[in-house]
Simulated assay, not measured.
Amino acid sequence: MRFSKRVQYGLVFLLQLHYSWPEHRSVKELAESDDLPSKFLEGIAADFRKFSIVNVKRGAQGGYSLAKPLKEITFLEVLRCLDPEWERQNKNSSRENRTSRKEAVSSFLNQTSGSVDRVFGEIFLDVLPALNVQDEGLMYYI
């Protein structure tokens, strides 16, 4: 399964905020640290704020911080926040004439979608720090 750049960059953004918690960090600073497009990251940060995933603090010492720990944020929340198409594809509001075959396929797709949502709703982002291998922390013995 492939995910959009918004979702990928959004996860990097949340991981960055996890490491800097409880301090606030600016989008510019976060974008530069992982070579991400600043304007793109601003949009992602705004969406996270609307969904109460991050807090924003205005002013010279301001920026973004996590509103809750990664262990309380699910992958499904991130998908719904950053990928509006994810929500739209799960809602079938077509008013076309339906045959029994179309109904069967629609039912199958709705069930499959529900299963995927349940799985993604059980994946919490606290697994990200364990997957992040930072070169600075590695020690090599010869």
Score class of each variant (00 low, 15 high):
18 H>Y: 14
45 A>E: 09
102 K>Q: 14
109 L>P: 02
107 S>A: 13
119 V>S: 06
85 E>D: 14
44 I>E: 08
108 F>H: 14
141 Y>D: 14
119 V>Y: 10
78 V>H: 00
73 I>G: 03
97 N>P: 04
124 F>C: 12
125 L>K: 01
137 G>I: 09
118 R>P: 00
133 V>S: 13
60 A>E: 13
130 A>C: 09
67 A>W: 04
1 M>C: 08
71 K>N: 15
55 N>Q: 14
65 S>D: 10
83 D>R: 02
117 D>P: 03
120 F>Q: 03
109 L>Y: 05
21 W>N: 13
129 P>N: 05
83 D>Q: 05
138 L>G: 00
114 G>C: 00
34 D>E: 13
119 V>L: 12
4 S>A: 12
125 L>G: 01
35 D>Y: 09
77 E>L: 04
95 R>H: 10
121 G>K: 06
76 L>P: 04
96 E>D: 07
11 L>I: 09
33 S>R: 15
13 F>R: 05
62 G>Q: 03
16 Q>I: 09
33 S>G: 10
61 Q>S: 08
5 K>D: 01
43 G>P: 07
134 Q>K: 12
110 N>L: 07
122 E>P: 00
55 N>D: 15
119 V>F: 13
78 V>F: 01
81 C>H: 09
34 D>M: 12
33 S>C: 14
141 Y>I: 15
78 V>Q: 01
81 C>W: 10
98 R>G: 00
130 A>F: 05
4 S>C: 11
110 N>D: 08
70 L>N: 08
121 G>Q: 04
15 L>A: 11
134 Q>F: 05
55 N>E: 15
34 D>L: 14
33 S>H: 11
109 L>F: 06
105 V>S: 08
79 L>E: 01
17 L>P: 07
122 E>Q: 03
83 D>M: 03
5 K>L: 04
23 E>M: 06
1 M>G: 15
23 E>G: 06
46 A>S: 13
142 I>S: 07
133 V>F: 08
98 R>W: 11
102 K>E: 12
18 H>P: 00
83 D>C: 02
123 I>T: 04
58 R>N: 09
28 K>Y: 12
136 E>T: 11
107 S>W: 06
112 T>N: 00
114 G>N: 03
33 S>D: 11
116 V>M: 03
19 Y>W: 15
26 S>V: 01
37 P>D: 14
7 V>G: 03
37 P>F: 05
25 R>I: 15
78 V>G: 01
72 E>N: 10
82 L>A: 02
59 G>S: 02
120 F>C: 10
22 P>E: 07
109 L>A: 09
90 N>K: 15
1 M>H: 11
76 L>D: 07
114 G>K: 02
137 G>S: 12
136 E>I: 11
103 E>G: 07
52 S>G: 02
105 V>G: 04
134 Q>Y: 06
40 F>K: 09
27 V>T: 15
63 G>A: 09
21 W>V: 05
39 K>P: 00
72 E>H: 08
104 A>P: 07
49 R>W: 01
20 S>Q: 12
60 A>Y: 09
26 S>A: 10
36 L>E: 03
89 Q>E: 15
49 R>K: 14
91 K>M: 03
107 S>D: 15
127 V>I: 13
87 E>S: 12
49 R>P: 00
